[in-house]
Structure formats: structure tokens, C-alpha cells
């Protein structure tokens, strides 16, 4: 893997993790990762949807107006998810639960795909879009699988359906509330790890150094700042792009200057 690819992977999967730091795609992760099996389904389907949609968006949809593109992402999502789902069902003979049958179609309209297509794929080459989508898919899938394992072990006392004979279980972890708390802890641990590596630069390997993209550093604040829950979004340009594109979209729809910044545009 080249240095550039490694930079994409590190940024997309860990430091700019879509679920933990950009807070997109939370619905499917929270609703669908109560067990390891369900979380694997979510991870595979999200990855297929994200990678294929981003590659198509980068290759074919650059000239198409934005509001048409959004509908196309949805169609691609539906076209990708159902064949993949049927393939998995036929090949593995795994029975999908009723709850998952409600959640899976919603993956077609997940915000991870929309954000990565609109902010990156349609502005970059196919290779870059593929790498970015792959990194996001790996990051999202890893979070889904970790959540699935921890929630199943603590919430049900099993892992992958196998009984662990635990002394007690906490049913709260099987609820969406438990997943939210878990996501908060995962984000905090990654933040603490990044902070630790920044404080101990000697511990960082030299090979990560030269081609490391600029935007992978996290804004972790200084020691004197009051401790509070802060949503970390590493790449602020993405948000600006989303806001400006929404602005354009509102203008094209209504004829009035849309103001999504909620003020005088400052």
C-alpha cells in the first residue's frame, strides 16, 4: 500500500471516522448492531453501497446537477443492497431477522454515502473516490462490528450466538441508548490515543510522517479548556462545502437566496 493510500485509510477509517467523529450513519449503527451477526450484515451492506456509489458518482455523475445526483445515489443504493443481500442469504443460509429486514432498506438512504459522494467523490478521481469510500467503509464497518460484539456480550451474554455463561448481563446495552454510550466511549478512547501520540512524538513511527495529509490532525483543545463533550469534525472544509451546496440547492429550488448559515453569511 502506498503512502498516499495509507494516509487515506488512516484519515478515513480512524481520525475522520464517519460514525464517531462526523456523526453520520448513526441510525443504522445504533438500530442494527445489537448482535455480531447483524452488525456484520450492516458492515458488508454499507461497504458495498458506499464503495459502488462513490465510484459511480466519481466516474459518471460529475456533470449532473446536484439535486438529481441525490436521487441517483438512492437508486444506486437500492440496486446494490438487494442483490448483495440475496447473495449473502443464498450463499450463507443465514436467516435475517425481521428487525433487520426493516433496517436494511434504510441503508440505501444513509447519510455516510451522501456525504462522501457529495463532498469528495464528485470532485475527485475515481481512484481517490474509491480509496476514500474504502476507508470510510472500513471505519464504519469496524465500528459496527466492535459495537456488535460488545453489545452482544454485555447485553445478551453471547457472542455470535454462542453462550458465554456470564454471571450477569446488562440489557441496557442491547437498547439504542447503550449503543450511544458505547460510541461515546469509543470516540473518547480514540481521542485519548491521538492525544497520547501527539504528546509522545517519539512513539509515532517515522513511516507515517512525510506523506501524512494535513487534515488528519484532530482539534483536541488545550489542557486548560473546560472539559465538555465536543463533536470533533476534523475536516471543516467538508461542512463548508455541504453548507454552500445546500445554499445553491435552495436558490435553485426557490429562486430566493437560501441562507443555511442562519445569518448574514458571515
Amino acid at each position: 500500500m502506498s503512502e498516499n493510500s495509507r494516509g487515506y485509510m488512516l484519515r478515513g477509517a480512524l481520525l475522520n471516522n464517519p460514525v464517531l467523529f462526523q456523526c453520520v450513519g448513526l441510525c443504522s449503527i445504533i438500530a442494527g448492531t445489537a448482535t455480531l451477526k447483524d452488525s456484520l450484515f450492516i458492515a458488508v451492506l454499507l461497504a458495498a453501497d458506499l464503495i459502488i456509489t462513490c465510484v459511480i458518482a466519481s466516474a459518471l455523475l460529475k456533470k449532473i446537477p446536484r439535486y438529481v445526483r441525490i436521487a441517483i445515489y438512492l437508486m444506486i443504493g437500492i440496486a446494490v443492497i438487494y442483490p448483495v443481500l440475496h447473495y449473502i442469504e443464498e450463499k450463507t443460509l443465514i436467516e435475517i431477522t425481521l428487525g433487520m429486514r426493516i433496517i436494511i432498506p434504510l441503508i440505501a438512504v444513509n447519510s455516510v454515502t451522501a456525504v462522501h459522494c457529495e463532498t469528495f467523490a464528485v470532485k475527485n478521481s475515481v481512484k481517490s473516490a474509491f480509496l476514500d469510500a474504502l476507508a470510510a467503509a472500513v471505519g464504519t464497518g469496524a465500528v459496527a462490528v466492535i459495537c456488535g460484539i460488545i453489545r452482544e456480550v454485555i447485553g445478551k451474554g453471547t457472542v455470535g450466538g454462542y453462550e458465554l455463561n456470564m454471571k450477569f448481563t446488562m440489557s441496557t446495552m442491547s437498547m439504542p441508548f447503550g449503543c450511544l454510550v458505547l460510541l461515546g466511549f469509543l470516540a473518547a478512547f480514540i481521542k485519548a490515543g491521538v492525544r497520547f501520540s501527539q504528546r509522545n512524538p517519539g512513539s509515532r513511527s517515522e513511516e507515517d510522517g512525510p506523506d501524512r495529509p494535513e487534515e488528519i490532525s484532530l482539534d483536541i483543545g488545550s489542557d486548560d479548556e473546560p472539559e465538555a463533550v465536543e463533536m470533533i469534525i476534523a475536516d471543516y472544509d467538508d461542512i463548508d462545502n455541504i453548507l454552500s451546496s445546500t445554499d445553491e440547492f435552495l436558490k435553485s429550488l426557490t429562486g430566493y437566496p437560501g441562507d443555511v448559515n442562519g445569518g448574514d453569511g458571515e
Binding site: 446488562m170 454510550v181 461515546g184 473518547a188 473546560p226 472539559e227 465538555a228 463533550v229
Partner: peptide
């Protein structure tokens, strides 16, 4: 578990018992 939850999920992330 209750004490650990109250401190690690409610107190510390929001900056202390007064916040």
C-alpha cells in the same frame, strides 16, 4: 455499576458534578 455509570457517563464527560 450504578456508581461507575454515574461518574463516567454523567459526571466526567460534562466537566464535573456542577456542570
Amino acid at each position: 455499576l450504578a456508581a461507575a455509570f454515574s461518574v463516567t457517563v454523567i459526571k466526567i464527560p460534562f466537566g464535573g458534578g456542577m456542570q
